[in-house]
Amino acid sequence: MNTNKNEKFQATTEKNGNSCTVYLLGELDLSVAPDFRLVMEPLVSDAESDLIINLKDLKYIDSTGIGILLSILKARHGMQTRFKVEQVPPQIQKLFDMTGIAKFFAPNENSQ
């Protein structure tokens, strides 16, 4: 386990037909929140594509990051467009469960 390798936050976008997946890598915290918001803005407002955020390589998230995910959830819900979060690492799932945001990521997309 190499903990000195502090990976810089990255958000990589992959378009695939009519879905768009954003892969997050590193630590999503207060310092990178403005960058992340900028990347997400056009993708969130694109009603033509399904939006997926993949958290497989996300090492850390703070309440600022959770807040951004929540605002994306709200925006997509308001537009009645699809949004999901996939491959959530256990330590991040724990925070989603604790804060209660997890239920909005439930696989049944019709549930509130």
Partner: peptide
């Protein structure tokens, strides 16, 4: 302050920290 008993449209993030 948690979101457990809230609907999506009512939730705010303040206080989660």
């Amino acid at each position: 302050v948690t979101l457990h008993d809230k609907e999506l449209l009512d939730v705010e993030i303040g206080g989660l920290g």
